[in-house]
Lab assay of single mutants.
Amino acid sequence: NSLAEAKVLANRELDKYGVSDYYKNLINNAKTVEGVKALIDEILA
């Protein structure tokens, strides 16, 4: 998966839960796919 794909999928996942734009910005600023995954795990914990 590319970083861009990971960000799109992460933001879709956040949308399902009604997560605020603050967290979407964190996702969009992530530098690695692993970073995106770690943020998602933390946000949805």
Rank of each mutant, 00 (worst) to 15 (best):
S2I: 09
N28E: 13
V33T: 05
G35R: 12
K24S: 06
A6V: 10
K31Y: 05
E42Q: 14
Y17T: 05
I43W: 09
V8L: 14
L14A: 15
D15F: 04
N25A: 13
L3D: 01
D15T: 08
T32F: 02
A45I: 10
A6E: 10
N11K: 10
L9A: 15
R12P: 02
N28S: 08
E42W: 15
A10Q: 01
E5S: 09
Y22W: 11
N11T: 13
N29I: 07
V8N: 15
G18W: 05
G18C: 09
R12Q: 15
V36I: 13
K31E: 14
K7H: 02
A45F: 10
L44W: 07
E42R: 14
D41T: 14
V19K: 08
K37C: 06
V8E: 15
E42S: 13
E13A: 10
T32P: 00
L3V: 05
Y22K: 09
I27V: 11
L39V: 08
D41L: 13
G18A: 07
V33M: 08
K37H: 12
D41E: 13
L3H: 00
E13W: 13
N28T: 08
L26V: 04
Y17S: 05
V36R: 00
A30S: 08
L39R: 02
L26T: 03
S20D: 11
D21N: 08
K37E: 07
A38Q: 12
V8Q: 15
G35L: 14
N25G: 11
K16A: 07
D21C: 08
N25C: 10
E34M: 07
G18M: 07
G35T: 14
A4E: 13
E42L: 14
K16P: 03
L3Y: 00
V19L: 12
A4Q: 12
D41W: 09
Y23N: 03
K24A: 05
L9V: 15
V8C: 12
L39I: 13
N29T: 09
A4F: 08
D15N: 05
L3C: 02
N1I: 15
D21W: 05
I27M: 03
K31G: 08
E13F: 15
N25H: 14
L9F: 04
Y22V: 06
A45L: 11
K37Y: 13
A30V: 05
L14S: 05
E13V: 14
N28D: 11
V33S: 03
G18H: 12
T32Q: 02
T32E: 02
D41H: 08
T32C: 03
L3Q: 00
K24E: 03
N29C: 11
V36N: 00
I40L: 15
K24F: 06
D21K: 06
L39W: 03
I27Y: 00
